[in-house]
Amino acid sequence: MDIDYVANLARIELTPEERKKFQGQLGDVLVYFEKLQEVNVEGVTPTAHAFPRFNVWDEDEPTTGFTSDEALKNAPKSRNDQIVVPKVIEE
């Protein structure tokens, strides 16, 4: 496993110790997962839901939501009723 690539995908900064430890542990886990590759799954429909249904939906009738105070109560940093983040350029 390219641990740096995946840790970056998951946006988790690892300490050098964690990186080393995970590399070994996750390698073992992946070996253990190899069992899956032996299963014959030809023509098998994947299970996405234990009890699938269709068209579970709601009507288009709006309700009121949070006030901006409620919305931002847990925010680490806010200004002008908005969340403050370090400057981002479009990615």
């Binding site: 641990i3 998951a10 983040v85 370090p86």
Partner: peptide, 23 residues
């Protein structure tokens, strides 16, 4: 910077098992 907010907040905020499983 913004990338740091994610990677560091999550790196510091999550415990080992959570990080292992997310990865």
């Amino acid at each position: 910077n913004a990338i740091d907010v994610y990677a560091k907040s999550r790196g510091e905020g999550f415990g080992e098992e959570v990080k292992r499983r997310c990865i």
